[in-house]
């Protein structure tokens, strides 16, 4: 279907508007989901770390470390928790969940003591690592690594769903806009054709039904007919309800 030049800019404007809305809402969604999920992850991890730290005191001081390992093994089953390790006050790794071994970056002690730190471990991925002190830190510290890849995956899913919905609305909107524009453009095209034919033929020009229309197109057609001398002066348009019936 051919879109009239008069309305092409309108369609382009609609297209641009959709684009701006789509991009801005997607960016807002990414930011919102990312910040909320990360915050939630860190909050959960801090809670778990504190729980382990509180439970560890008795085990570290009085019991075998297998009980400590058994404790952290249960927590590492929680979705999103990728690793847990516990260091005592002298920097010794008392229990951990790493396979095949403790990563070099962690062994070097980078970021130890920080409440929250972002880590990128080769071969493992990216993590937010939170920690909690055991017995105010004098007995050691619990560290929990949360997989940020999972956050990224959730963001991707959220954005994917949004893009899918937006694309559907966009396609339906564009088709509807083209249909509506063409609906409005067809009488104008007929008027143009009538005007051209009237200029050529003067009389007997086919009016394509424009002369009987009671809208602005019909009035223009009748006005053209009058100017060409082949018709009477059309009656003035009926005033709209908002327009005063007569001037004072």
């Amino acid at each position: 279907m051919k879109i009239q030049k008069l309305f092409q800019k309108t369609l382009f404007g609609i297209f641009m508007l959709f684009g701006v809305i789509g991009i801005s809402t997607s960016m807002l969604a990414i930011y919102t989901v990312d910040s909320q999920l990360t915050e939630e992850y860190e909050s959960n991890a801090r809670g778990v770390a504190k729980t382990i730290a509180d439970s560890s005191v008795d085990i570290i001081l009085n019991r075998d470390l297998s009980a400590l390992q058994s404790l952290i093994d249960q927590f590492v089953e929680i979705q999103g928790i990728s690793y847990i390790y516990i260091i005592n006050d002298s920097g010794e790794y008392l229990a951990h969940t790493f396979v095949p071994g403790i990563p070099e970056e962690i062994l070097r002690g980078e970021g130890h003591g920080a409440v929250s730190v972002r880590r990128s471990l080769p071969g493992m991925g990216d993590f937010v690592e939170v920690s909690s002190p055991i017995l105010a830190g004098v007995a050691g510290r619990v560290y929990i690594g949360m997989d940020t890849g999972l956050v990224a995956l959730k963001i991707q899913r959220a954005i994917g769903q949004q893009v899918y919905l937006f694309s559907t609305i966009f396609v339906i909107g564009i088709v509807a806009a083209i249909w509506l524009v063409n609906l409005a453009a067809r009488p104008v095209a007929n008027l143009l054709a009538y005007a051209v034919e009237l200029a050529r033929e003067q009389s007997g020009a086919a009016d394509n039904g424009v002369l009987v229309r009671d809208d602005e197109v019909g009035q223009l057609a009748r006005l053209f007919q009058y100017f060409s001398g082949t018709g009477d002066l059309p009656a003035p348009a009926r005033p709209s309800p908002a327009t005063p019936a007569s001037s004072a």
Binding site: D64, L65, S66, A67, L68, Q69, S70, D73, A95, H96, T97, F98, V99
Partner: peptide, 11 residues
């Protein structure tokens, strides 16, 4: 073994 058994032996 990365579990309580391994940790017991490690300890």
């Amino acid at each position: 073994q990365a579990d309580a058994y391994g940790r017991s032996g490690w300890a």
